[in-house]
């Protein structure tokens, strides 16, 4: 079972990566608004091209 001396530190590295990714997301405001994005996907952005100007 000496393999766990490799696997567990590897698992901890992944844990660190996950925590870092979450922190990055929080810092970038990904969790600030959890409602709008769910709606946004329902709406087409490009029905008609908006007139320039």
């Amino acid at each position: 079972m000496t393999i766990i001396y490799v696997l567990i530190p590897l698992g901890l590295l992944l844990l660190g990566a996950a925590v870092w990714a979450f922190f990055w997301a929080v810092r970038n405001g990904q969790f600030d608004d959890l409602d709008t994005p769910a709606w946004r996907i329902l709406m087409d952005d490009d029905q008609k091209p908006p007139p320039k100007g």
């Binding site: 709606w39 329902l42 709406m43 087409d44 490009d46 029905q47 008609k48 091209p49 908006p50 007139p51």
Partner: peptide, 11 residues
Amino acid sequence: DARGLTEFYRF
């Protein structure tokens, strides 16, 4: 309507 944003009325 002119801006092509009538989806608004549906949602």
